[in-house]
């Protein structure tokens, strides 16, 4: 086994582990914002590691995999913001365990 091969195994395995952690986090976290922490951060790094690791096994695929990685890193936070805004604007969706909530105060000030 060459060095590249071992590196590819390690990176791919780590990526799969982080993707599993993101699924578990989305399942276990109690409210929508905390689910978002697991669903955004962990899937981003998990996808990056997993796709890059598979690219190390098959180097001719690296350009296209790099494109997928770039797209995921650029768009994942955007969809998370959109969902977070939606969750905060809708009173029935908002979790009630927030210790402080500055955004609610500043919204209340406008009206």
């Amino acid at each position: 086994m060459s060095f590249m091969n071992i590196l590819a195994h390690v990176v791919t395995g780590l990526g799969a582990l982080v993707l599993f952690a993101s699924g578990l986090g989305v399942f276990r976290m109690p409210d929508v914002f905390n689910k978002m922490h697991a669903g955004t951060k962990a899937t981003t790094l998990g996808s990056v590691l997993f796709l890059f690791g598979l690219g190390l096994f098959e180097p001719s695929w690296l350009p296209k995999l790099f494109l997928i990685i770039l797209f995921i890193v650029l768009t994942n936070p955007v969809s998370s913001h959109a969902l977070a805004r939606a969750a905060h604007n809708e009173p029935s969706e908002k979790p009630d365990n927030l210790i402080i909530d500055d955004l609610e105060e500043s919204k209340g000030g406008d009206q």
């Binding site: 993707l19 993101s22 689910k35 939606a86």
Partner: peptide
């Protein structure tokens, strides 16, 4: 809740 499902959908599609 609906937003929980949306977050889960986001994660599912990425995996």
């Amino acid at each position: 809740k609906a937003t929980d499902r949306a977050v889960a959908l986001d994660t599912t599609t990425l995996i």
